[in-house]
Design a protein around this nucleic acid. Structure first.
Length: 573
DNA sequence: CGTTTTTGACCGGCGC
DNA sequence: GCGCCGGTCAAAAACG
């Protein structure tokens, strides 16, 4: 941002009367093209010394950058910028090939002429040339400048083509990514169907054999209530049993095996996502008569640990709000309230009521030290369609779980590097996302409190800093949104790859995966929703998240009133 | 009357 | 083994 500001300032200094129409486009584009390291002098000198090709090129590119991002007027802006100088030099004779496009700038150029012409005039005076010579020189200069303009135009064109190419490539990749995701989803559905059928067949066989315990277990699988670890076990069992079923008569080829494994793996991941936060129902159904713990240490493997980690992974949002809860687009029902140790404010427990089977929960509690800060902790994944606003928040919890599952918990990269998340989330600004390694649950924390001197401190083992002031907080939002949106496809791709890698277990993923995953999480657009939700509550409780994102969720009547909370949901105490 | 909230009881994990 | 604590359950109360 500093670089951008510098550029704007330089231009303003150079062209003092340039219409203040376009400082804003400079905010974005220089981030994409790396010309911001140019000195101020480059801008000034280039403007005055058109015969310095090297420097001039820098100037041209910088100015290109400065306006190129203005997608509504980038073409015209380039030419306007490039032509301003020549217009200064030729006050009444703008180049014919640009005249049509620069009529808006003629007057401006007249005003900007002073500095440049003074220099030129001075040189002319120093030469002591006759008026005729001056005319010739001026004409030569005009010719040179026209040639320069043409060259600049060509460069502009090339750069525009490059930009267009990059944009197209990005769009293509995005489409490709979406296609892959759809295919993946289809595979998941297909794999689930196959597993369902297969398990039913196996159930029948086992019922005949009389293995009632396995029947019970697999019924749980069929109901989709089994934890991923058990699914994994089940799949292993099924895989081994596949050698005995009908299909095993013809040994599958390697590709078939690989394909099947991949499909089952994806199905497992899908189940894992669904089962995350299944909570009591799942346990109630699954617990064997012997009350064998589901995560028996004796048979715990990486997948089990990952599952346990995912189940408990949480996303916590700290935001200043006088409301009982931040609005996140979901319907919640309070099911409990407890006094937590060390905090005079009670902690309220909510569960999602948008679908019968959804067991997503959240805890809401005011900070003990600063009761204007509302701490909302989410756990689990929704298993039902959500309105856009709610979907964003819900995906965040899933994303957090994936991040933590990916090995960040075991890696110090993401946890112990104080600047890691900050660099990832907002490379040019302060930190707001933190990861807590404190037991018992891995937690991703978004701190949206505005007061850096708030008495509230993050729990031990957290990495955290805060926005320096509210204006900065809000001012950074657009950039944050841009950044997160830009990374959306990247994150999705990573998420998919994580799905596949997750079967390897955290230990088998390298530190790069850890870092990248954490980066993806931090850059996830879903975080935007969290931020938006928190910000919306900060800005005013009468402005729900929809004000920031979309009003489309109004259709289900769950926007500002989405969170059905009693007035005493969180006693102010 | 159906839904939601309240609140005491209960359960399981964990530390001593 | 016991007590503490976090989290959940479920009956009663409150609400619309």
């Amino acid at each position: 941002m500093d670089n951008t500001t510098t550029t704007a300032t330089t231009l303003n200094n150079t062209t003092t009367t340039r219409p203040p129409s376009n400082p804003s486009p400079s905010i974005h584009f220089p981030l994409n093209l790396n010309h911001m390291n140019q000195q101020h002098d480059d801008h000034v000198d280039l403007r005055l010394n058109s015969n310095n090709d090297h420097r001039h090129q820098h100037r041209v590119i910088d100015e290109m950058d400065f306006f190129a991002d203005d997608r509504t007027n980038k073409d015209g802006s380039h030419k306007q910028q490039a032509c301003t100088d020549i217009d200064h030099q030729n006050m009444t004779t703008p180049p014919a090939d640009h005249q049509s496009t620069h009529f808006n700038y003629v007057n401006t150029g007249l005003h900007l002429l002073t500095a440049n012409t003074s220099t030129t005039d001075q040189s002319m005076v120093d030469d002591g040339s006759s008026p005729a010579t001056d005319d010739t020189r001026a004409k030569n200069e005009i010719v040179m400048l026209r040639a320069e303009i043409e060259r600049v135009d060509r460069e502009n064109q090339e750069l525009k083509e490059m930009l267009s190419h990059v944009t197209k490539s990005y769009s293509t990749m995005q489409v490709h990514l979406m296609t892959l995701m759809e295919e993946s989803q289809k595979k998941d559905a297909h794999a689930q169907q196959q597993l369902h059928v297969k398990h039913r067949q196996e159930d029948k066989q086992q019922i005949e054999v009389g293995t009632s315990r396995l029947v019970q277990k697999q019924l749980v699988v069929d109901l989709g209530l089994v934890p991923a670890s058990d699914i994994h076990d089940q799949q292993s069992l099924s895989s081994s049993e596949n050698n005995e079923d009908g299909r095993s008569n013809s040994p599958p080829t390697n590709s078939e095996v690989a394909s099947r494994l991949q499909m089952e793996e994806e199905a497992e991941i899908t189940r894992r996502e669904i089962s995350m936060g299944m909570g009591r129902e799942e346990e109630a159904v699954h617990v064997s008569p012997n009350k064998v713990p589901r995560f028996n240490p004796s048979k715990t493997n990486n997948a089990d640990q990952a599952e346990a980690t995912m189940r408990k992974a949480r996303v916590s949002v700290r935001a200043r709000s006088e409301a009982t809860m931040i609005t996140d687009g979901c319907q919640w029902r309070k099911y409990g309230q407890k006094m937590a140790k060390g905090n005079p404010c009670p902690r309220a427990y909510y569960r999602c009521t948008m679908a019968a089977g959804c067991t997503v929960r959240k805890q809401v509690q005011r900070c003990a030290e600063d009761r204007t800060i509302l701490i909302t902790t989410y756990e689990g994944n929704h298993n039902h369609p959500l309105p856009p606003a709610a979907m964003a928040m819900a995906s965040t919890t899933s994303s957090a779980a994936h991040m933590l599952l990916s090995g960040s918990m075991s890696s110090t990269d993401g946890l112990m590097n104080p600047n890691f998340l900050a660099r990832t989330l907002l490379p040019c600004s302060s930190n707001m996302a933190t990861i807590s390694a404190s037991a018992p649950f891995p937690t991703v924390t978004l701190d949206l409190t505005q007061d850096p001197n708030a008495a509230t401190q993050p729990p031990p083992n957290t990495i955290q800093s805060q926005f320096q002031n509210p204006s900065q907080n809000l001012a950074l939002l657009p950039q944050l949104f841009t950044q997160t949106l830009y990374n959306q496809s990247m994150f999705s791709g990573l998420q998919m790859s994580q799905h596949r890698d997750s079967s390897l277990g955290p230990k088998q993923q390298g530190p790069l995966a850890d870092s990248v995953t954490a980066a993806a999480i931090a850059a996830d657009p879903n975080f935007t929703a969290v931020i938006a939700a928190a910000i919306s509550s900060m800005i005013g409780n009468s402005h729900p998240i929809n004000n920031i994102t979309t009003n489309s969720s109004n259709s289900n009547g769950n926007n500002s009133g989405a969170n059905i909370v009693s007035s005493s949901g969180i006693p102010e105490n």
